[in-house]
Nucleic acid binder design. Sequence first.
RNA 1: GGUGCCAUAGCUCAGUUGGUAGAGCAACGGACUGAAAAUCCGUGUGUCCUUGGUUCGAUUCCGAGUGGCACCA
Length: 301
Amino acid sequence: MMNKTLIVILGPTGIGKTDLSIDIAKALGTEIISSDSRQIYKELSIGTAVPAPGQLERVKHHFIGNKSIYDYYNASMFEFEVLEVLESLFAKYKQVVMTGGSGMYIQAVCEGIDELPTIDQQLREELIQKYNAEGIESLRIQLKMLDPLSYQQIDLKNPKRILKALEVTLQTGKPYSSFLTRTAKERPFHILKIGLQRDREELYERINVRVDQMVDEGLVEEARRFFRHRHLNSLNTVGYKELFEHFEGKISLTKAIELIKRNSRHYAKRQMSWFKRDKEIVWFHPENNQKIIDFIQRNSS
RNA sequence: GGUGCCAUAGCUCAGUUGGUAGAGCAACGGACUGAAAAUCCGUGUGUCCUUGGUUCGAUUCCGAGUGGCACCA
């Protein structure tokens, strides 16, 4: 399979990944895997900016709307499922396009993440309760005792990081740090990472305009449908969480829309931070289709 | 045209009894190994409108100019 290439098209939200990826997949005569942790939910479409029906007809997409917001899902499951789909796609195509903005999902596919046990739901809830009742310091103390190495390496101000380490340690009886190998897994195909970049002001303007479009298309109604499920992790998502605040009467609709724009900008910023450190990425402007296709042709095996 | 008020960060504004300045929002930078559109950490970015004067020293006091707002003509 070493003559196969996975073409990863990445960049912040609103940069123009969707249009470009479809053009490229069309030009290469192949299919697209979405690496977007929210477009994967079938119940969400307006707020996650899934490709339009017409676009989905032009090129076959995978991992869009194939999970439910009620299901538990994570980056490791994504890694496993994508590798499986890739195997069958590479049987048909020399190149496959993967596009999306979820850095961790992309990393899971390209480099893999270490094997960890699935956490018992009850254990997880107990730990969260302990955190709520006793605060973060009590988690830190427990971690220091059970897994001093993680205690040294983990961001001790971030409750999610400590909870993860504790969960694994308690469930397996082995320190979380012992599961981390710090080595990238070998993949039986080449990977070409294409990053999309444009002027910051222009990107923010695109984000603002797109949020207004989402509202015109019925984002408020889409969010209202899931209001009573607002505590689901899948709905802890920009575009929905702000509207839930509005439905709760805490903020006006205008304010909610403003916050969606701002939080989208912040999200874009975090994505750029994530991608910036990956030196394998070659950067292009999202409208330089021909340049990008030439680059792919030259560098695919 | 006259009178009054105002001019400080990207925005709204506070402040310095004269020793070059700060808050909210916005913005900026970063971390990230199974919740990742999540979660967490860090940063004030400034010709204090311009120009004379007083003063050891002016963003602050005084004069003039410019711009804005209000009222009177």
